[in-house]
Write a protein that binds this DNA or RNA. Structure first.
Lengths: 120, 120
DNA sequence: CAGGATCCCGCGGGATACTG
DNA sequence: CAGTATCCCGCGGGATCCTG
């Protein structure tokens, strides 16, 4: 997520964070990597159903240069590249977990039929 | 955030959540409302520097129909409309807070010069 | 296997003007 | 004051093919 979405990066840590993990695939990638300590390129691709090479490569690169993801390349043939979360990436998980818990609660309320309550 | 970004809504609560709060302005709006119990349309607009009427109105509508935001309209003249967070909206704040804390930490590390550490 | 290069389209979202 | 209505552009991201 660059340029036009860099709204108030400087004044808001939330926006700053979203600039790193925004976009269609980054959170799914983080999530997938959090459930499998380390994954190869094609493993990751298979688990992220529907992602294209371009988007996967690009997302990984951006998150790598943000320090969220670690890329380990082995000089073998055929090539083998393994991706994992860095410390910063791991520290992001609690936030994503909170989101997940909230989402799960909302989904539950949805088909319980119970929603819409006021705060005042 | 609709259509093309509805990736795996059904299988992932995180994606489900992001479908509600995705887009350029929704989190800033939630954030702003969380710091001012209740705000009128133009107050909100002034605090969200740079947002257009269209985006503000549209974001508010979507979040209202998601049950995140409560809209109270007073039959006065000139019109007066007040926005506040619903219970569901309030419950979202911990997640946003986690993001904020993480973002703040990263920003700090940034100009400390210290970044990039491995998880393994 | 792990990507790179190109082409292309849709829609998210900005600017501007108007209204009850 | 609190929105609507229109026009328009850019880029996020898909599809497809190519390569070390």
């Amino acid at each position: 997520m660059n340029k036009k979405d860099m709204v108030n990066t400087m004044d808001c840590p939330v926006t700053y964070a979203l600039n790193m993990i925004g976009g269609k695939w980054k959170i799914p990638i983080l999530w997938t990597l959090s459930q499998n300590r380390v994954l190869r390129y094609n493993e990751l691709k298979r688990k992220l159903n529907g992602i294209t090479n371009m988007m996967l490569t690009q997302s990984l690169k951006e998150m790598e240069s943000c320090g969220l993801i670690h890329r380990e390349q082995y000089p073998e043939i055929p090539p083998r590249v393994e991706y994992s979360l860095t410390q910063a990436g791991l520290e992001l998980l609690p936030a994503i977990d909170e989101l997940a818990k909230w989402g799960a609660r909302q989904m539950a309320l949805r088909h319980t039929g119970n929603n819409e309550s006021r705060s005042e």
